[in-house]
Design a protein around this nucleic acid. Structure first.
Length: 159
DNA sequence: CGGGTTTGACCTGCGC
DNA sequence: GCGCAGGTCAAACCCG
């Protein structure tokens, strides 16, 4: 076995900068996510089915996809969750020397995204945020990831 | 050659 | 209204 085990760290009490971990654990409520999100989640033209007018920006806030965030202590940034991801961006974030990476699920038709970022102050900790619901079941879930899900008591999103 | 990564530009929301 | 910060796009690049 490789030495890629990661330890699930639980929510963020006060020792964590809330700006880095928008929220933790399970949360299906877009409203809640909305409240806890400190920054803009700008346009998500991946959502919804109305793409008729690419020019016109949606009226109000768009519905956000459910997001699930958790922290793990791991040497590797990328958790082997069984899905295939394609990196589509990387940004430096405020108050954190580590960049945030953006990934999309490569499954056709699957619009799930995730963000991966190391925690400032403890670079051994990786904050992973999933956004959306997979349209395909996981192919080969790793023990690591199963462990995480079990610990988190979640997993509605990955049917 | 195909698929994934890198990286700078662009877009959008939000706070002042 | 302006500037900042986060999020996304897409062309160039890299690698198997």
């Amino acid at each position: 076995m490789e030495d890629r085990r990661c330890q699930v760290l639980f929510p963020c009490s006060s020792s964590v900068d809330p700006r880095l971990t928008e929220y933790h654990g399970v949360d299906n409520s877009a409203e809640c996510a909305d409240q806890l999100t400190t920054s803009s989640l700008s346009q998500q033209n991946m959502n919804t089915n109305e793409e008729e007018k690419p020019k016109s920006k949606k009226k109000k806030k768009k519905e956000r996809e459910a997001r699930y965030a958790f922290q793990t202590r791991s040497q590797v940034d990328i958790l082997d969750d069984g899905y295939r991801w394609r990196k589509y961006g990387q940004k430096a974030v405020k108050n954190n020397p580590f960049p945030r990476s953006y990934y999309k699920c490569t499954e056709e038709g699957c619009r799930v995204k995730k963000q991966v970022q190391r925690l400032w102050g403890d670079e051994g900790v990786v904050v992973t945020t999933y956004q959306g619901v997979h349209t395909h079941p996981v192919d080969k879930p790793s023990d690591n990831f199963n462990h995480i899900l079990t610990q988190m008591h979640i997993f509605p999103p990955f049917s």
